[in-house]
């Protein structure tokens, strides 16, 4: 690693001030950033650890929305009684990320801000139509996620934007189906399906290789008739999926359809 200094502010205002003073980088759970630093792919000069900021680790509910602090670990989201009650699929999804030690450290905000093309949270947020709250603004997931590791937040020098919370509509008819890479545990393909008000369905896929995306054709078919059979005559173009050492684009496209059907069945069977 390059040399850098580290600060551990205990409130959001101090964290933002320290970032602006130093031009450094925010450190959440470190499950991605620390390996990146070890490879000398980043030279931040200064790191601002968000770990001690209590206001980033709250869970609250108002007007049909859950607001989850960006600093909540995957373990905390999985174990939150409020999340288990309002968005049970999200609690289960968080409880299946990585392994126990990763869940004890990795955070919701870190996953969302990093937007790894195989991460689970972006698919769930996009399908739910969640809103991402930063220290400056609030924007819908559709605008926030912009492809491979790319988001709407600015990361320019001393004007770095910080994800502070996620606002999620409490839509209970929602499920996430994931086909894991057997070694890494990352999603080869993960699909979140949410049936919202007036039966409008949103479907989002992670693991395509090109960043989280909605599957609009599936959404239209499932909004017409919510059944796995509605997908039978549809197929996804392999052009929308990547081939790599793990598997082919054709197989990823087929998996995305299978995982969508699986999530639909989970919702119909009441497993949500």
């Amino acid at each position: 690693m390059y040399e850098f200094s580290l600060s551990t502010p205990t409130n959001l205002a101090d964290a933002v001030a320290q970032q602006q003073d130093s031009g450094g980088k925010y450190l959440a759970g470190g499950q991605t950033l620390v390996p990146t630093l070890k490879l000398r792919l980043a030279d931040p000069g200064h790191l601002i650890s968000l770990r001690r900021i209590a206001e980033l680790r709250t869970v609250s509910e108002a007007d049909g929305f859950l607001t989850l602090g960006a600093g909540l670990t995957h373990h905390e989201v999985a174990r939150s009684v409020l999340v288990q009650h309002r968005l049970p699929f999200l609690a289960r999804m968080a409880g299946a990320i990585g392994d126990p030690a990763v869940r004890n450290r990795g955070t919701l905000g870190g996953s969302v801000a990093n937007n790894d093309p195989s991460a689970d949270y972006p698919a769930a947020l996009l399908a739910l139509g969640a809103r991402v709250v930063t220290n400056r603004r609030e924007l819908p997931a559709d605008e926030f996620f912009q492809g491979l590791f790319a988001t709407a937040i600015t990361e320019d020098g001393d004007e770095s934007e910080l994800v502070t919370a996620i606002r999620l509509p409490c839509l209970r008819r929602a499920a996430y189906a994931k086909f894991k890479h057997p070694a890494s545990g990352f999603a080869l393909i993960g699909v979140a399906v949410v049936q919202g008000d007036e039966d409008q369905v949103r479907v989002a896929v992670t693991g395509s290789g090109f960043g989280v995306a909605r599957l609009r054709e599936f959404e239209a078919a499932l909004s017409q008739r919510f059944a796995a059979e509605s997908l039978a005559s549809l197929s996804l173009s392999p052009d929308e999926f990547a081939s790599d050492s793990a598997t082919s684009a054709d197989y990823r496209a087929a998996l995305a359809k299978a995982m969508t059907a699986d999530a639909v069945r989970q919702i119909i069977q009441g497993f949500f």
């Binding site: 551990t8 450190l27 470190g30 620390v34 373990h75 392994d99 126990p100 030690a101 004890n104 450290r105």
Partner: peptide, 28 residues
Amino acid sequence: DTSQCGACLVLIDGQSVKSCSVFTGELD
């Protein structure tokens, strides 16, 4: 040393954590 093998686990406040992925300076 890449947060995958689990050989470096320790407990921090009772929770298992990969000690190769945490900075000592965060642990006051």
